[in-house]
Amino acid sequence: MIRIKGLWKSFGDNKVLKGVNLDIETGETIVVIGQSGCGKSVLMKTIVGLLIPDDGEIEIENVSLKNISRKKLLEIRKKIGMVFQSSALFDSFSVWENVGLGLIEHSKMSQDEIMRIAREKLKLVGLSDVEDMYPAELSGGMKKRVGIARAIAMNPQFVLYDEPTTGLDPIIADRINNLIIELQKELNITTVAVTHDIISAYKIADRIAMLYDGEIIFDGTPKEVQNTDNPYVQQFIKGEGEGPVSGGI
């Protein structure tokens, strides 16, 4: 499980996270919702140690990331896959090399073996005959899928999705949602997603947490989210411009 305790993070005078507490149980899918720029991506990057918190602690499988050696951190990260908002595919590598890079670097498998696994993972995300193409030749939805294939290539215990459906049309977005659910079921992965796409959140989440003003102000099942009388949550899920939520523009 992932345990987030009292997490603070600021950039200059801008306090982004102000004491975030969240427990993510093994095997569940949790979606963190919140406005654009509220610190969802910062939270995600802090979870995996890409950003160092000013205060607070992250524990992954009972290992604290506080003062952890770099070697151990890199070791822990092998258990984690992350799908980036912009896909972040390596543009000088072909699709199969992107998917297989972790294996190329960390395993002693032959190139044929890695290629076979890459092809298998690509098939799992619904892609075939793209392994020799380059990221520049792919559409946005395909890039996302390759990003997902890359994230699951090393059979991780955790997969983190940063805005998995942003920038995709509703149909492709729904397919990505289905894919996230399928992978979660099939591979029994603990899934953490951050998004402002409430439809996607309802669809994939076992639990939804809302991040507002640097704190988790609500945490519950999709049903509880719909029925809560918390005015902030209600305004967000209904997408209303007027209400208690300040900030944004």
Partner: peptide, 9 residues
């Protein structure tokens, strides 16, 4: 960041 996540320094 993606490299870091894959455990590649």
């Amino acid at each position: 960041d993606a490299l870091e996540i894959m455990g590649i320094d």
